[in-house]
Amino acid sequence: MVNETTQSAAGRAWTETDVVYVDQPELTMSERLYLPQVFGGMKTTLRHMFKMRLRKEKVVQYPEQKRQLRKEIYRGVHRLNRDDQGRVACVACFMCETACPAHCIHIEGVESPWPDREKYPIKFDIDELRCIYCGMCEEACPVDAIELTPEYHLVGSSRDEMIFDKEKLLMVYDRTKDEKPRKNPMITGY
């Protein structure tokens, strides 16, 4: 009779006393007449309407004011980090491209001219419109070459413009390196 699905966490069968019926609350007089409650609601909205202070505190006038972000964890536009010699830190291992759930990263790797690694990316495109800013690429990267920056003013007038190539991503790094330093610059020694 009693199968697994009807057993409680304690291992015994459900009884009537375990069932909790949640009642709708009874309506009071003013709720039944409806109008007093309407005025109650309007009191609340009117209070907010005439409270300038709340507005001043809460509203960010965007292009003039910027939001205060927690820069370490904010996930905005990507950047491609440079190593200490100013070269692109990426080793074209394709980990980020594999990890990306939105398939927005496209890498083409070629043999590296430098002795310290085998490959480097000749092409590194990120479709910022497709990206869902989940940060998986950042976590997948073995050399911390790709990172998400706190920049969120991401605008463009065409789709092509929003596909960021290697140069653009490196420029983002140059722009944001003071704001958010590279996470582990010395971990691989590149």
Partner: peptide, 20 residues
């Protein structure tokens, strides 16, 4: 109207079938 509301014990408008 209020008295009828008390006697009938049903909301004028409002949820359906809320048991008293």
């Amino acid at each position: 109207v209020a008295l009828i509301g008390v006697v009938v014990q049903k909301p004028i408008t409002g949820r359906q079938r809320s048991l008293i």
